[in-house]
Design a protein around this nucleic acid. Sequence first.
DNA 1: GTCTATACTTGGATAGAC
DNA 2: GTCTATCCAAGTATAGAC
Lengths: 216, 216
Amino acid sequence: MAVSGVRRRGTVEGAGSAQTRQDLVDAAVAALREVGFSGASAREIGRRAGCPQSQVFYHFGSVVNLLLAALDEVSTRRMGAYRSMVAGASSLTELLDAAQTVLTSDLAAGDVRVLAEMISNAPMVPGLAAEVERRLVPWFELAEDAVRTAVARVPFGGLAPTADAARVVVAGLLGLELLESLSGERRRAEQLFGRARTFAALLDGLNPPTSRETTS
Amino acid sequence: MAVSGVRRRGTVEGAGSAQTRQDLVDAAVAALREVGFSGASAREIGRRAGCPQSQVFYHFGSVVNLLLAALDEVSTRRMGAYRSMVAGASSLTELLDAAQTVLTSDLAAGDVRVLAEMISNAPMVPGLAAEVERRLVPWFELAEDAVRTAVARVPFGGLAPTADAARVVVAGLLGLELLESLSGERRRAEQLFGRARTFAALLDGLNPPTSRETTS
DNA sequence: GTCTATACTTGGATAGAC
DNA sequence: GTCTATCCAAGTATAGAC
């Protein structure tokens, strides 16, 4: 019954290591979300994972390494949802609707918060900035895909500097996360999407599809 | 000669208190810029100010209070420059040019970094978030003025949700600061302004002044 | 692999001399 | 008002038993 029930560390021989490791990663994600980078100490993470803090150093060598593993976890976890979102949208309105669904749930779940915590504290830890930057690449690529989709049907849209725009999009997402975590209100972003959708519908209306879309 | 020369703390009777206090504020600003919120300890600030850390607690009661005073310092210091910038611009192009001048110098000087450090770490210290939020109000008001200026000559611009747009502008500024401090490059923002200016000129060209501007 | 115990460091804050 | 000296809490990391 240990198989289908709640797995206790150490009760299944041989599986303890991987289980503890995953528990620590999950605990690190939760800690980054709820108490931030500075609060995510080995003791705090160990407490959340239900094991002593020495396990952090046994499995990851240092707290920072564990936090990077946590960043990988949230990053890869959400990338699938984002990709299908961008791939499925063919107009600015559709893109915004999809973005609202995915982004607000992400903001609520705190995944963006994890990213923001790592980015804002990376400059203080030697060598961490480069590691975080590497893990940011897929986010920029994804944002650029979204920008390309958004301007696809706008006249002269192909001339838009999509790389720069993608940087601004990511920056805006991070900045909004900072502002929301400050005020505690998580509703502002949704209002923002509502307003943006109005304008998007206007733009899409100005440039209606010239023929049937290939959505079949 | 102590008057015109470098003032040493304690050498002029009665003036020591205010001088030390200001030294601590300046040191706190520099510390927030260079080593961030987590690195801005009482000892670090005292070292930069050339006095023992006990002075931090004598003059401000706690480290957090001193950091708030530092935030007030940079906030009020730059507000004048921003206000004259917004007031002096009457077109989107002019606004962007002025913004490029002021913002890039601010990003280089690290004033935005101070703001970002306080915002991103505020949620972790009980009671700090509310204080930081209060000090953020003039930034939003200023951004809203800028947005109003920018859309003044765009048709139906009066219908734009300027408050929401201002929030996005501030968020974008903070997010760009995070990304720039991560990569260490401080040139991306300038490139961004260059691109934006191209589009602004396009928009301004589409809506030329109907009559002579009241710039005389 | 996991635990307890501990060495070492740093930071916030206060006491008391001058 | 400023200084030195000190207390106490919390953090990283390691040693060694099981």
